[in-house]
């Protein structure tokens, strides 16, 4: 299973900050597509992704136990 972390507007939209989802061997892009369908989550196309706390491309392949964080445009400072 992949641990997915959601922040800011994505967390508000889904109503929770973590979910566990089947995704071994999937690319980040495919996982985004799956989340869009299963959770009707909008706006995933415009967010950054981190895999295991490091920014990752859409073609990064995921393995069981990975932590994927969807990172909306940041606004710190």
């Amino acid at each position: 299973m992949i641990n997915v972390l959601l922040f800011a507007q994505l967390k508000d939209e889904l109503g929770k900050e973590t979910i566990s989802i089947e995704g071994n061997g999937m690319s980040v892009a495919k996982l985004k597509g799956k989340m869009k369908v299963e959770f009707e989550l909008e706006g995933l196309e415009t967010v950054m992704t981190a895999v295991n706390e490091e920014f990752a491309d859409d073609d990064t392949i995921l393995s069981d136990g990975d932590t994927v964080a969807f990172i909306p445009p940041v606004s710190g400072g």
Binding site: A8, A56, P72
Partner: peptide
């Protein structure tokens, strides 16, 4: 990865993409 939620007099918004002016097409900053 830090986000700011503005609570205005007339509502609230997560700052950063309210107009979707900051897309990340490559998935990276």
């Amino acid at each position: 990865p830090i986000w700011k939620k503005e609570h205005w007099e007339d509502g609230e918004t997560w700052v950063g993409n309210q107009l979707e002016t900051v897309p990340y097409p490559t998935g990276k900053p």
